[in-house]
Amino acid sequence: MSHSFAQVWRKEVLLAYALLLPSAVFLAVFTYWPILRSFWFSLHDVMLGDSRIFWLGAENYLRLLDDGLFWKVLGNTAFYTLTTIPLSITVALLLAVALDSKLRGMSIYRSAFFYPVMIPSVAAGMVWVFLYAPGYGPINSALEFLGLPRLDWLYDSAWALPAIVLMSIWKYSGYFMLILLAALKLVPSDLYEAARLDGVGPVSRLLHITVPLISPTLYFVIVIGLLHSYQIFDYVYVMTQGGPADSTNVLTFYIYQNGFQYQDIGYASTIANTLLVFVLGLIGLVALTLGRRVHYMGER
């Protein structure tokens, strides 16, 4: 009896590994091997298309510390992440709260805010280059119409990165809004009713009832936002090529420049490792600060 049980168990284990094999092979080759190899490259002098490899030790990392442009790029990346995510989540939350009731035309509104997610990043980037055009772009025409000064947007090193942030809010708020809408549906409406009867205003209802109750989802949206923020590469590549004066150069683009334009795989890998640490660090930070304060309805 126990013998046959062991046999059945062994068969199940074999089956499990066989089922995992296809995924595991591709995960190993295209996710985990590159991370290990990237660390290995960062300790060497490696050129693209050259099979020779020379040991450098920590030299690439020391070079990184001395590289003024790297610190600027890191700052730009932090600026983009730390403005785009809070701003687009705030917009998303306000939209979601506005759409949450049995509003007429709700599905039209929802789709109108969501459709930018369906547009390829290259197309979105290109259209916004046109919209931001200093001479004939409609945004400047609108500013002039409102009596505001015209801006050089993507040609002005002070405005280029904020311009990409604005575009990103347009592109991603709708996605975050949808996820938040799903969470809002689960908030019991009698809570609002009770608060309203107690004379609690709409702003404090939002801050003290809605936000705590949907905090697990907000937390999740922040993590998704962090992962989406990588996509800024596409916009930088299409809209500015990192310029003017490296004011829109970000980590992913700087990796590309070093690896593909200067063919310096060793140094580019060093920056790529920094990017991984940067993103994992941010996610860890979010988990430790917000994750702890998340309010789970029901269990926990």
Partner: peptide
């Protein structure tokens, strides 16, 4: 193994494209 699967979500192609390019070459 399950954690290794989940962790992939954190490492999108934008962070590891360089070594993947070398591998495919």
């Amino acid at each position: 193994l399950f954690s290794l699967f989940l962790l992939q979500v954190m490492f999108p192609i934008y962070a590891i494209f360089l070594t993947n390019f070398v591998t495919l070459r």
